[in-house]
Design a protein around this nucleic acid. Sequence first.
DNA 1: CTAAACAGAACTGAATCAGTCCCCATTGTT
DNA 2: AACAATGGGGACTGATTCAGTTCTGTTTAG
Lengths: 156, 156
Amino acid sequence: MLRITKLTDYAIVVLAHLVQTGSPAVGVSTARALATRSQLPAPTVSKILKELARAGLVQSERGLSGGYRLARPATEISVADVVSAVEGPIAVTECSREGDSCDHTGHCPVESNWLKINQAIYGALSSITLEEMSRPLAPRLIQLTSKPTTATSALS
Amino acid sequence: MLRITKLTDYAIVVLAHLVQTGSPAVGVSTARALATRSQLPAPTVSKILKELARAGLVQSERGLSGGYRLARPATEISVADVVSAVEGPIAVTECSREGDSCDHTGHCPVESNWLKINQAIYGALSSITLEEMSRPLAPRLIQLTSKPTTATSALS
DNA sequence: CTAAACAGAACTGAATCAGTCCCCATTGTT
DNA sequence: AACAATGGGGACTGATTCAGTTCTGTTTAG
C-alpha cells in the first residue's frame, strides 16, 4: 500500500500534541501526559519518544519532573524528518539507497530511475512541516487532482 | 522505510521490459520470456502479470501463442498506476482512505492533514510515466528534490 | 487431442510490525 | 541518604504481511 508504519503515524500525532502544549522550548511534557492526550498506549508513546530523541527531533530532560520538548521550532521539522527518524532512511526500493547493488545492476532497465521517484517522494514529505500538521484544519482543502498526464508529452 | 513492496518493484521492471519489446500494441510477450529477460523467477512474474491484467494495465491473449501487451502507450501509464494495481489504493496511513474512521476521529490533531501528504505522494508518483522509467538513463539527473511536484503550496 | 499459454486461488516459510516488559540511569524531593 | 518519578535501551512475543510456489482450471493454435 505504500504506507508508513503505525509507529510513524503515532509519532506525528504525538509530536503534534507536543507542539500544542509547550510552545517554544520552555516546559516539557512527560511521555505519560502525551500518551493520555493522544489516547495511545503509554509504553508505545514512550518508545516513540525515545526514538525521536535519539534522532534529535526532541530533547529530553531526565529525572523527576523530566519530559520532552521539541528540539527545534515546529516550522523546521518536516514530515520527512519524522519518517526518517522512526523508519530509517527513506528508500522506496532497495535500489534507492546509496551503496546498493542488486543482482541486476547493469542490465536492469529501471536502475537509475528509482532515484527519481525516491527524490520526488522525499521532496513531497520534506515540504510539509510539523507546524502544518498541527493545524487543526487544512487551510483550504487541496485540489491535487489525479493528473498523471503532467510531464512527458513529446514521445511515443 | 516507506517502501514499496518487491512485487511492485518487479512489476515496474517487467513492464519496462514489455515496453522495450513490443512497441505499440502489436506482438505479445509471454510471461516466461519476460521472466527470462528480467531475470526474475517465472512464477512470480506470472503472478504479477495476472494482477496487472486484472487492473487493466496490460492486455492478455490466451491460448497457445498468447502473451501480454501493454493496454496503453507507455507514456500514459504512471508509476502510481502500477503501485495501485499491485498494492491497492495508495494510502499512506489508514486515515488517508475515504471511508475511514479511527478511534481518534474528532480529536486527532492531524486528522485532516494526512490527506495532504497522501496527495503529495500520489502526485509525485503520478508524474512519472512508464516511458520515463524505461529509458536506460535519466536524461538529466534530476533536481526534483526541492520541487514536490504538485501539492502543498500555501504554507508557512 | 494435445501442448502452450493465461486465470485464479490456496498454501507456506520468512520477515516485519506493533506492542509490551524489564532493568538501568538520572534527578528532584523528602 | 532514600525514594519516587522520569527517561534510556534493549529483549521478547503474537499478529500481520510479504514473497514465492504450487495446483487446478480455461483457452486456443496446430
